[in-house]
Design a protein around this nucleic acid. Structure first.
Length: 420
DNA sequence: TCTGGGGTCCTAGGACCC
DNA sequence: TCTGGGGTCCTAGGACCC
């Protein structure tokens, strides 16, 4: 059996931890640039605010009805997430952290006749009492079924946040009541294609001929169907898989035309990406830079330009990454467009402890570079000062908006809550 | 004026090889 | 009214997820 533990309205719930005055108030969290809504408390959901809705469309009405809003505060959410995951791994060491707000537990290592119901309610109570975050729990023989059970646990108040599926007959009944688009891995496009062949519920999906799936769909769907039938195909990861790519990209506070400003933004993102890369203990060989206009604005001339560059030596050196990212920018930049977003993608990783040199490579002494990067990371991490590179710019014209951010209650000594 | 960011996996199709 | 048949490797792009 697998359990899926999912935090309810995670970001909104985080904001409520240190603000008891917001207990029953609607709370929404905005994406970077305060662009659109990415989390809503249950009260905000009831007001009809939808996910990824542009903020400007709901702002006036929402605020006039007494709604509360925050810019996203990822540092804070990540810290609360860590606390939740730590508690969960104490309760069950076989844990697979799936995202910032959810984790799978593999319950097969438990004793045979453990009472799943009381285990689930204990989990829920402990996380609420110790950390202050409400969670929903779905338990079932496969991850896909646990995911589905979790959805119902969260949406249907009759279940009080816990749904356990174990009996085949109950599972069948449950699947018949589930629209196919609620199934994990079935998105918009697949829903349309499935409905066209008469598949409306999750149960219908378990009944279609596997040859039909092989001919018309792909192995992903085939796996989903097997999981719905109770055959576990998606297991826990034994260890944290290393990342395969690192992306840093941002929309600008307002659109810009100048290459110099773009270069500052690219350098800034490149620097962040290099930091992440070193944190993963990887080196990259491929650097991709992209710049684009605002795709929602049909009145302006559109552009999306991107190019990749392959390095001879894999690197994690911020200076090398910045330099090459800007070389790409030189190649793809075109005058006369309004750019709204820029980003950098690092990929083709090799372990930073060693890589295969070619026969004619000179032995390279990059100890100095390694030491320099380590020192910069340390200074920034410890917040002794903020160290960056000159070409990251000092102008703030392209920086994002984040105007209504809460305090970093748990990670900054001068922002911890005060009790007077 | 105002529409996020960061991932994964899979597949089709091109380049290239014999 | 006709122009082989496999292979492999790589990349771009689609679909999906949170």
């Amino acid at each position: 059996m697998f359990a899926l533990i999912d935090c309810n309205s995670f970001y909104a719930s985080c904001e409520k931890i240190f603000r008891p005055d917001l207990k029953d108030r609607p709370v929404v969290i905005l994406s970077n640039n305060d662009g659109c809504v990415i989390a809503r408390s249950s009260e905000a959901k009831k007001m009809g605010v939808s996910m990824t809705q542009p903020w400007y469309q709901v702002k006036d009405q929402y605020l006039s009805k007494g709604g509360v809003v925050f810019s996203s505060n990822y540092e804070f959410y990540a810290d609360i997430s860590n606390r939740v995951m730590n508690v969960l791994s104490d309760l069950c060491p076989e844990i697979d952290i799936y995202s910032i707000d959810e984790a799978f537990l593999d319950l097969r290592s438990f004793k045979k006749n453990i009472d799943l119901i009381s285990f689930a309610y204990d989990c829920k109570r402990i996380i609420k009492e110790w950390i202050g975050i409400p969670v929903s729990i779905g338990i079932a023989p496969t991850k896909t079924l646990a995911k589905l059970a979790n959805k119902v646990a969260k949406d249907d108040p009759r279940f009080d946040g816990v749904v356990i599926l174990s009996e085949p007959r109950a599972i069948k009944h449950f699947l018949k009541s589930m629209p196919v688009e609620k199934v994990w891995g079935i998105g918009k496009k697949l829903t349309i294609r499935l409905e066209n062949i008469g598949v409306k519920t999750a149960y219908d999906l378990t009944q279609i001929d596997s040859r039909l799936i092989g001919d018309n769909f792909n192995v992903v769907l085939e796996r989903t169907v097997r999981e719905l039938k109770g055959q576990s195909c998606i297991t826990l990861h034994d260890f944290m898989e290393p990342k395969k790519q690192i992306m840093v990209s941002r929309s600008f506070g307002r659109s810009i035309r100048s290459k110099n400003l773009l270069s500052e933004a690219i350098s800034f993102h490149a620097s962040r990406a290099a930091e992440k890369l070193r944190h993963e203990k990887q080196k990259c060989r491929l650097i991709t830079t992209f710049i684009r206009s605002n795709r929602f604005n049909s009145k302006i001339r559109q552009i999306y330009a991107s190019r990749s560059l392959e390095l001879i030596h894999p690197t994690d050196d911020t200076r090398v990454i910045i330099k090459n990212a800007n070389r790409i920018l030189e190649q793809i930049f075109a005058d006369g467009y309004q750019y709204a977003k820029a980003g950098i993608l690092l990929s083709d990783f090799t372990d930073s402890y060693g890589y295969q040199m070619s026969l004619f490579d000179k032995k390279r002494d990059d100890k100095k570079a390694t030491k320099l990067m380590e020192t910069i990371d340390y200074i920034n991490l410890m917040e002794i000062a903020k160290v960056g590179f000159g070409n990251q710019g000092y102008r703030n014209t392209w920086r994002m908006k984040r105007e209504i951010k809460s305090q970093r209650y748990t990670t900054k000594i001068d922002e911890i809550p005060l009790i007077r």
